[in-house]
């Protein structure tokens, strides 16, 4: 019962029957080798083979813009609001599962963020295994996210003519029951799964010159590295890297007054440390004035600060920041440059 099997020929039916039960979102091809999570009605809409989407599924847990407060000035009222939607997300890669786990830690850290936590509980997550690297930008092995590590209700792994599905929660189990398309896995499926994993252990190697466990130590010594000067010269502060990151969670708070000049809302909107005004204070002082300092901050927020606060890396290895960078700043190259510059000093 822990492992079920879905025939590939039943995949379209599976998505269609899911879509009759609940809103389903899944990766959809957008052309030019880009993808995004969107609502789907049928399995044919789903890009089962896809590279990380433009935005991670974070957008469903922590939307780009979210009303937190609604007010009515003349009535003197102000109420806290929760916007949510029940849905099933199909096809979440292990990197993005890790991203959601990171956000879970941040928003359940005290004081808790009720909006996030309630919304999260309305979403069922179906993971999907990458049997091989999606492209040259991925670095999931170096942060150990190439293999599933929880954070899902169901987890799909593609075998020859079927998917083997790990059932992780009762919510996942309910979907198996309701859709009636699954059969319990047999030994042959389990053997095939083991073969996939074995092959993955061979394919996925540390993508950088430093081991997973030594990354935090590398960053301990890298604050004053010349590498940041190089990024300072190259970065244009377009903000793409932070906006596409599955574990970035910075935001701004904005008030909006309706045209009656009486009612309105307080909304939080994604913000990013790469944006010029991000660390400015009222007097005009900017505590991270240079693009290099802001890039350094981004890297440290992935490899050092969260290790101290949450005991894990906040880089998920998805490679989105590298893929989207206008200046072609590469996460792997930056880490390797930090390793090299450390050695030069010796």
């Amino acid at each position: 019962m822990q492992y079920q099997v879905l025939k590939k020929s039943s995949f379209n039916d599976f998505i269609a029957s899911l879509a009759r039960i609940e809103k389903v979102v899944a990766p959809v091809a957008r052309g030019y080798n880009t993808f995004s999570f969107q609502e789907v009605k049928d399995g044919q809409d789903v890009a089962v083979k896809y590279i990380p989407t433009i935005l991670p599924p974070k957008k469903y847990f922590f939307p780009q813009r979210e009303k937190l407060i609604e007010f009515n000035k003349s009535a003197g009222t102000l109420e806290a609001l929760l916007e949510y939607e029940k849905m099933v997300i199909f096809g979440v890669h292990t990197c993005d599962l890790a991203g959601i786990q990171c956000l879970n830690m941040v928003f359940s850290d005290k004081p808790k963020d009720i909006n996030y936590l309630v919304r999260k509980n309305k979403i069922i997550i179906i993971g999907l295994e990458c049997n091989e690297y999606c492209d040259q930008y991925a670095s999931c092995k170096v942060v150990d996210n190439h293999l599933p590590n929880g954070g899902y209700d169901l987890f799909f792994t593609e075998l020859t003519d079927s998917f083997i599905v790990h059932v992780n929660t009762i919510y996942g189990d309910e979907l198996i029951d309701k859709t009636r398309l699954f059969n319990p896995a047999e030994q042959i499926h389990l053997d095939q799964l083991e073969a996939v994993r074995q092959k993955k252990r061979e394919i996925f190697k540390d993508e950088v010159k430093v081991n997973h466990n030594d990354l935090a130590k590398l960053f301990d010594k890298s604050f004053d590295s010349k590498v940041w000067d190089d990024l300072d010269a190259r970065c244009i502060a377009c903000g793409n890297c932070t906006n596409v990151c599955p574990s970035c969670y910075c935001f701004d708070m904005l008030d909006n007054l309706n045209l009656d000049l009486n009612t309105g809302d307080r909304t939080r909107m994604w913000d990013g440390c790469q944006n010029e005004p991000f660390a400015k204070v009222a007097g005009g002082e900017n505590f991270r004035k240079t693009r290099g300092a802001r890039q350094r901050h981004r890297y440290f927020r992935k490899f050092k600060y969260p290790v101290e606060r949450y005991s894990r890396y906040f880089c998920t290895g998805c490679g989105r920041c590298t893929r989207t960078c206008m200046a072609k700043i590469s996460l792997k190259e930056t880490i390797n440059a930090l390793v090299d510059s450390k050695e030069e000093k010796k």
Binding site: F107, Y249, C250, F251, D252, R268, Y305
Partner: peptide, 15 residues
């Protein structure tokens, strides 16, 4: 002095 937006250790502005 920093420009806090949330006050509860999430928004990142004062980091």
């Amino acid at each position: 002095e920093r420009h806090m937006k949330c006050g509860i250790g999430k928004c990142g502005h004062c980091q």
